[in-house]
């Protein structure tokens, strides 16, 4: 009897914690939607900021964020996948590999502002890319690299050994085996890593302050060597700069809402791709 009561109390505590987690998530979404959804209109999505950031839209920031996502993923996805394939499939097992793995995991724990300073020193100044989409995308790409490598590794390791053995038994080369037998079943897991990275890239402010972002610019970038507006930095700018905080706050909440929708819809798209892939493999 006593055991049962203890168990019940334990479970109700676990349930309570679950509830707190869900509640905080729900509160965030509720507040962003309640305060931000009102600002959304066609004009808000398609125009540049106007009248000293008190009206008009945030289109350049949306496009800028989109470019940064595309650029950083285009850089980090192939690189991360290649790293993971090498580490899982080719490299000899040993302590050097372990050191490399530990290093990659540690890289994942580096604060994002440190990546920002790194990007400033290396891409902006040393390579001379300036404050640009290129510098920002590379900085963000390096920031999410560990995440993509880890997720890809997990996914590759989860592919049953028998797949590889069967492929080798048919006379396939290692590369062919990886391409045809290992990567396809691992793809859903790899994509999960990329999805999470997209969310991080879209939302990070610190790495782009010094490398890619500008507070105000009209229209869209013509090349990857131009700086861009970006949603998270625009929110920051609206809340800290300017002389019309009341109107700016509304726009900031609108931006937060767009950011939320953007990240959720990218995740949703990737989930669909993942499910389809899984079904095809299944």
């Amino acid at each position: 009897m006593r055991k049962k009561i203890g168990q019940r109390i334990g479970f109700s505590f676990l349930f309570l914690f679950l509830l707190i987690t869900l509640l905080s998530l729900g509160t965030i979404i509720y507040f962003i939607v309640a305060k931000g959804a009102g600002a959304i209109s066609w004009q808000f999505l398609t125009q540049s900021p106007k009248d000293a950031m008190t009206s008009g839209g945030v289109a350049p920031a949306i496009i800028g964020t989109f470019y940064l996502i595309l650029g950083s993923i285009a850089f980090s996805f192939p690189l991360g996948l290649a790293c993971a394939i090498y580490l899982c499939e080719y490299s000899p097992k040993g302590y050097i590999i372990n050191i490399i793995r530990i290093s990659i995991n540690n890289l994942a724990g580096v604060p994002s502002v440190v990546f920002g300073l790194f990007g400033l020193a290396v891409f902006v100044k040393f390579f001379g890319f300036g404050v640009s989409i290129l510098s920002g995308a590379l900085t963000l790409g390096i920031m999410v690299l560990p995440q993509i490598i880890s997720a890809s590794q997990e996914a590759l390791l989860a592919v049953p050994q028998s797949y590889r053995e069967a492929s080798f038994a048919l006379g396939a080369t290692p590369w062919k085996t990886i391409k045809k037998a290992v990567i396809p079943p691992a793809l859903p897991g790899i994509l999960t890593g990329v999805i999470l990275s997209v969310g991080r890239v879209a939302g990070e402010t610190a790495p782009i302050i010094f490398t890619a972002a500008t507070l105000y610019k009209r229209g869209y970038p013509n090349s990857i060597f131009e700086e861009v507006m970006a949603l998270p930095y625009h929110i920051y700018g609206l809340m800290t700069e300017g002389t019309h905080p009341a109107q700016q706050k509304e726009i900031a909440y609108g931006c937060a809402f767009i950011l939320l929708v953007l990240v959720l819809s990218i995740s949703f798209l990737a989930i669909i791709i993942r499910q389809r892939q899984r079904r095809k493999n299944g």
């Binding site: 470019y67 595309l70 285009a74």
Partner: peptide, 12 residues
């Protein structure tokens, strides 16, 4: 990926 490269490579 191709689309990304194309868009990013456009110079004004």
């Amino acid at each position: 990926f191709l689309a990304a490269v194309l868009i990013l490579g456009l110079t004004g």
